[in-house]
């Protein structure tokens, strides 16, 4: 019960951080440099790992469904199954989890160290709200980059599935049939749902990481703790939100 209360208050405070950050929205045009810098860190540098891992997620998905479906002689439907799972669920979730691991941890570490070494205090005495300079550009950047990461994850996952479906001997599915399964039964709405999901996940991950980083108190040892907390809270948020967003988008 206490843990639940603790998590809820974390999410509540993260939400308040969001509200405080959004107040600085008018300053955004002046912060384009920082937004682009964060876009680079959030999107460009995360892209390779997202691409590689979603390829394997798609592959293993095709392998598993192929193995199960060959019993019924229904391997033709691998494309549909992989297509829908990647678009609706695995693409966005994988992209968000990798974002939490790669970017969320880095953000919480950076902000925690800024907090511990009083850089955040220095900003406050300079009348530069940390929300404006540290949080807002990251939130905007993730909004711009997350759909790109998610669509990359989805498409590369599809390709991974196609490679496995056509190359593994006991499946041996013609890629054309595989992609027919995708184009005929995956609606653009499915992909759009996935992108919306990814957007919400990514936003939550960055918001939580910023919040945890800025909440850090004490000495340098707390930086490590903050990183752990940020990643754990992000993963909880992703899986928790996943259910409800899925429900809402169905």
């Amino acid at each position: 019960m206490r843990i639940l209360h603790q998590y809820l208050s974390e999410f509540g405070q993260a939400f308040l951080l969001l509200v405080r950050s959004l107040r600085h929205l008018p300053s955004l045009p002046r912060q384009m440099g920082r937004v682009i810098e964060q876009c680079y860190l959030i999107g460009y540098t995360t892209f390779p790992i997202v691409a590689i891992l979603s390829f394997f997620i798609g592959s293993v998905l095709a392998l598993q469904t192929g193995y199960s479906l060959q019993t019924f002689g229904a391997v033709d439907f691998i494309g549909t199954i992989v297509g829908l799972s990647m678009a609706r669920e695995l693409g966005p979730v994988m992209a968000a989890i990798l974002l939490a691991g790669r970017v969320g941890s880095a953000i919480s570490a950076e902000l925690a160290s800024m907090k511990v070494y009083q850089e955040v205090d220095a900003l406050i005495t300079m009348n530069i709200p940390p929300e404006r300079m540290l949080v807002l550009p990251r939130l905007i950047a993730v909004l711009l980059m997350m759909p790109v990461l998610a669509i990359v994850a989805i498409i590369i996952g599809w390709l991974g599935g196609a490679v496995v479906a056509s190359q593994v001997s006991f499946i041996g599915l013609d890629p054309r049939i595989y992609f027919d399964g995708i184009t005929n039964f995956v609606a653009f709405k499915d992909v759009l749902d996935g992108l919306i999901k990814a957007q919400i996940f990514g936003f939550s991950v960055i918001l939580i990481s910023c919040h945890v980083g800025l909440q850090t108190r004490g000495g340098p040892r707390e930086i490590g703790n903050s990183v752990t907390r940020a990643v754990v809270l992000s993963l909880i948020a992703i899986l928790f939100l996943d259910y409800f967003i899925t429900q809402a988008l169905l």
Binding site: M114, E119, A122, T125, M126, M133
Partner: peptide
């Protein structure tokens, strides 16, 4: 408009010395 000189400096580690100094006037234009 007050300036606090922190014990450990609290310089922005990601910015050069020049940018550290220029941050305030730049931010407040």
């Amino acid at each position: 408009r007050l300036a606090l000189v922190f014990q450990a400096g609290a310089l922005f580690n990601s910015l050069s010395v020049f940018d550290n100094l220029a941050l305030y006037p730049r931010e407040h234009r």
